[in-house]
């Protein structure tokens, strides 16, 4: 555990030192190169910022209006039949839309049920094997003005569904 925490602590400084040392050994003007790259990074973020604002507003409206909670409550009978814990439904659904909102929901679940509870473990595993579909697709396709995304959404929903089903089965069989 300490090793892993140490690992996450030293990861970034280690990347810094390694890259700078390799750069120096290859006679790269390291600071000039850094500035050049940083300029490109700023441009990338400025380009996606309007998309980010638009998306977060939409998610905020759906969540604050109570619509999201309404969905969960009305689908509870169905999730109960599938053996899928109802408290995880908002997380599974939000996971496809917004990473930060999902993190908030997971922390709330940890607070209520504890991280070592069955739903706590299932949520932890689920978060590790799924990605934010709509956020990723929007950011990536909008940045190059693609209008038709073809079978990306079908594939993305498929892998997410498989990830969720795998999480449920694995949690049931391991714990």
């Amino acid at each position: 555990m300490k090793m892993l925490m140490l690992f996450s602590d030293v990861m970034i400084p280690l990347i810094f030192v390694t890259i700078i040392c390799i750069g120096l050994s290859k006679k790269v003007p390291v600071f000039d190169a850094f500035i050049e790259g940083a300029k490109e990074g700023i441009k990338i973020v400025v380009d996606i910022l309007p998309t980010l604002i638009g998306l977060m507003i939409a998610v905020g409206i759906v969540s604050r209006s109570g619509l999201l909670g309404f969905f969960t409550t009305s689908l509870k009978p169905l999730t109960d039949q599938l053996g899928f814990p109802a408290p995880l439904l908002p997380i599974a659904m939000m996971r496809t839309i917004s990473a930060s909102a999902t993190t908030g929901l997971v922390l709330d679940l940890f607070k209520t049920y504890g991280p070592d509870s069955f739903v706590g473990r299932m949520a932890s595993i689920m978060m590790g094997c799924t990605e934010t579909i709509f956020y990723t697709m929007t950011i990536y396709f909008m940045s190059i003005n693609i209008k038709k995304t073809r079978y990306t959404l079908v594939g993305a929903l498929l892998v997410t569904l498989v990830g969720i089903i795998a999480s449920v089965i694995i949690t049931y069989s391991v714990f």
């Binding site: 990347i15 750069g23 050994s25 790269v28 190169a33 790259g37």
Partner: peptide
């Protein structure tokens, strides 16, 4: 994001050049 992304793309530019 601007700060963190710029930090990373800056580092990656060094890595790329090296």
């Amino acid at each position: 994001l601007i700060g963190v992304v710029a930090m990373w793309t800056g580092l990656m530019k060094i890595a790329e050049r090296a």
